[in-house]
Design a protein around this nucleic acid. Structure first.
Length: 426
RNA sequence: AGAGAGGUGGCCGAGUGGUUUAAGGCGCACGCUUGGAAAGCGUGUUAGCGCGAAAGUGUUACGAGGGUUCGAAUCCCUUCCUCUCUACCA
């Protein structure tokens, strides 16, 4: 959520930066500002009247003590009108506060000035490409066929147990999956991230604080009975560790990493892109989260991008980095870099990571601040990124590393898997 | 899940309707004292919002939300959480 004070101070530049999202938010912003004016007026009058009330009450107490009942009663009568008036003012104050919040929830984060214009993913800007595309032998097949051939993933079994989008990993498929998770966690730990294992269900407060609610309500699985949401990403519970927290300046940088399964309803996304591991309802992901001093957040974003890049390089996957354009930028982000790996057998790019700076958009809701030495407490910047999402990495690994003899395991993973090839020979 | 006891500042802890302007203690910061330190003494030490150029000042918050009252940490209702015992279980 944007800060109303900042909107008041930088109205014009906020409106113009938001234009890159291909939508005009000037009306909403104007509405928020008028509500804000109303709010401040109400509060000013209310505070004055409450102050008067407090004084009268104090006096009544004193009069009773001195036994001056009659004078006290006169004063009591005087409060009747005041009381009515404060009640109305309180309602007005509350309703403008609610109105402001409602409006602010509809306004996405202000894109960074370097976010390119564009209204679809085609206009995302490729900023670097690395890794070598493999030369596959004749007869190379997509990962869903490999999964079947080598008994790595059983999609039909998942359908029986749960439904589409809930695959069962078996044998070496399961072992490879676990190896990847451990590899990603260890790489993060060696970059000074602290590991956490958070809850997989969160309450509505947490959903609101990181911005999944109300924006993506329909995308999360919801448990009616206990009013809990299954997490769509570890970002939610990990970032919410810091809800209502005031950090000290020397706590920075805060770096957390967590592996969790992620659950997404993916309502409305059916068709060609959902084949195999490309889009699932349940998938594994290792997520990195940083909480940063406002002045350092863009340097930290670069650091996180470098971290993700190194993972893909170590796995030897042909990849590229995109800077998302305004039309593809998430609701809560200022700047996002996506990583895609090239899936040779499908001949397409698959998104495996998204690294974003949210500046104060989340911390405003989280009420996550830090004590700075001489100034007033101020909001921190939050950032997060996938490092990495498993299914498409698995897909790309299987497809790109297939040989006539079997699927070779990247060297860095061998200590984790305990085998260096998946073949049918055994 | 059933019964009971609780939830007060950074921490401990007093407070059952009116100087609570939240006692007292611990911790922390600064100052005095000292050759230096400790002790001692003094001062300060929550957050949000509003008004103000600033100094400052008003208001709100005692788990959360409602209610009673001129006035609520204190009384009433709802709800969340913690602890103890019982039950169940991994």
């Amino acid at each position: 959520m944007l800060e109303i004070n900042k909107i008041r101070e930088n109205k014009e530049s906020i409106i113009s930066l938001l234009k890159v999202r291909n939508k005009d938010f000037s009306q909403l912003i104007q509405d928020a500002l008028s509500q804000d004016e109303l709010r401040r007026k109400s509060q000013f009058t209310l505070d004055q009247e409450l102050s008067e009330m407090n004084q009268i009450s104090k006096k009544i107490g004193e009069l009773f003590k001195e036994g001056k009942q009659e004078e006290a009663i006169v004063l009591k009568n005087k409060t009747v009108l005041l009381k009515e008036s404060t009640k109305k003012l309180k309602e007005q104050l509350l309703s403008s506060e609610i109105a402001i919040k409602e409006i602010l929830c509809q306004i996405p984060n202000v894109p960074n000035a370097i976010v390119p214009a564009g209204n679809s993913e085609e206009q995302n800007e490729v900023i670097q490409t690395f890794g070598k595309e493999p030369n596959l032998f004749d007869g190379a097949v997509p990962h869903w066929e490999l999964a079947k051939k080598y008994n790595l993933i059983d999609f039909e079994l998942g359908v029986k147990i749960t439904g589409a989008g809930f695959p069962v990993y078996t044998g070496k498929g399961a072992q490879l999956q676990r190896a990847l998770i451990n590899f990603f966690l260890n790489e993060a730990i060696s970059n000074n991230y602290q590991e956490v294992i958070p809850p997989l269900l969160v309450n509505a407060d947490s959903g609101y604080a990181t911005g999944q609610l109300p924006d993506k309500e329909g995308q999360m699985y919801f448990m009616q009975e206990d009013q809990l949401y299954l997490i769509p990403t570890a970002e939610v519970p990990i970032t919410n560790i810091f809800r209502d927290v005031i950090l000290n300046e020397n706590d920075f940088p805060v770096k957390r990493v967590g592996y969790t399964p992620c659950f997404r309803r993916e309502a409305g996304s059916y068709g060609k892109d959902v084949r195999g591991l490309n889009r699932l309802h349940q998938f594994d992901k290792v997520e990195i989260v940083q909480i940063s001093h406002p002045e350092k957040s863009y340097a930290i974003l670069d650091e996180m991008v470098a971290h993700v890049k190194a993972l893909l390089e170590k796995l030897g996957l042909p990849s590229r980095v995109l800077k998302l354009c305004g039309g593809d930028l998430g609701f809560t982000a200022c700047l996002t870099y996506d990583f895609e790996v090239f899936s040779a057998a499908q001949d397409k790019w698959l998104e495996v990571s998204s690294v974003s700076n949210f500046e104060t958009y989340q911390s405003n809701r989280l009420k996550l601040r830090f004590k700075s030495k001489n100034e007033k407490n101020q909001l921190v910047h939050t950032l997060n990124g996938s490092a990495l999402a498993l299914p498409r990495i698995m897909a790309a690994l299987l497809e790109n590393n297939q040989t006539e003899k079997g699927i070779t395991i990247p060297e860095v993973l061998v200590p984790y898997t305990g085998f260096n090839i998946i073949s049918n020979v055994e």
